[in-house]
């Protein structure tokens, strides 16, 4: 046990820095994912065919390939086409775009599951299509899709571990580095596993549950 504490204190800097980078990647990825999910999800419901097609192509490409393939492609191939992103940016943009495609399906499904009577009542009040969506449908859709978004947030956190493979110095990267210098694999990888677990189980999940309850209260259900 004391040797493990020694291990921790010797590598505290690396672990703390790595964790900070992982958290930054997580927050930025989540923001990108939410933004893209809402835009693409709503576009799949748009009456305009070209807009619908653009959203569908985005969703199918990112859902149909692997996050790691996307990451390598965006980081190594995109510069050949003149778009060079710093690795930190390439990391969260790719993770965000990948999960945004999955999230778009959640947004679309939630909007479609708001009862038809709500659309009709909003129309009977003569609300414009934009107001119907913003004031009546989206608040209800949000409550419907929050639970699956809770799982999605954990998936995004896990997804950020892949940015280590394009050398972003996150927690995953640091644990590999520690393993490479000390050969204490159980300690290096085990510690990282525990940190990811604590964040997912005791930070991200409770936060999302709290949001769910807050939304339920707004709907007068709690």
């Amino acid at each position: 046990m004391s040797s493990y504490l020694e291990f921790l204190s010797r590598h505290a800097d690396q672990l703390v820095n790595g964790t900070a980078i992982t958290l930054a990647q997580f927050v930025l990825s989540a923001l990108v994912a939410i933004t893209l999910a809402v835009i693409a999800g709503l576009l799949t419901l748009a009456p305009s065919r070209p807009l619908k097609a653009v959203a569908t192509v985005y969703i199918e490409i990112f859902r149909g390939t692997s996050l790691l393939v996307q990451l390598y492609w965006i980081y190594f191939v995109l510069p050949l086409m003149g778009l060079e992103l710093p690795k930190f940016v390439a990391g969260f943009v790719t993770v965000g775009a990948c999960f945004g495609a999955y999230g778009a399906e959640l947004v679309r499904g939630a909007v479609l599951s708001v009862p038809k009577g709500q659309w009709e009542a909003a129309l009977a009040l003569n609300m414009s299509p934009a107001k119907r969506m913003r004031r009546i449908i989206l608040p209800q859709a949000l409550a419907i899709m929050l639970p699956p978004w809770g799982n999605m947030m954990v998936e995004i956190l896990k997804g950020t571990a892949l940015v280590a493979l394009i050398s972003v110095a996150d927690l995953m990267f640091m644990s590999r580095q520690i393993n490479g210098t000390t050969y204490q694999s159980a300690q290096a990888f085990g510690t990282a596993l525990i940190i990811y677990y604590v964040f997912a189980r005791f930070l991200v999940t409770p936060l999302m549950r709290w949001l769910e309850r807050a939304m339920a209260r707004r709907l007068g259900r709690a």
């Binding site: 609300m127 009546i136 209800q140």
Partner: peptide, 23 residues
């Protein structure tokens, strides 16, 4: 409507204010 279709995320008062204010 037969099934009322009140907006569940608004109080009774807010339901009655929504149209006048927004529209």
């Amino acid at each position: 409507f037969q099934h009322f279709n009140l907006f569940p995320h608004m109080t009774a008062l807010e339901n009655c204010m929504e149209g006048p204010v927004q529209v």
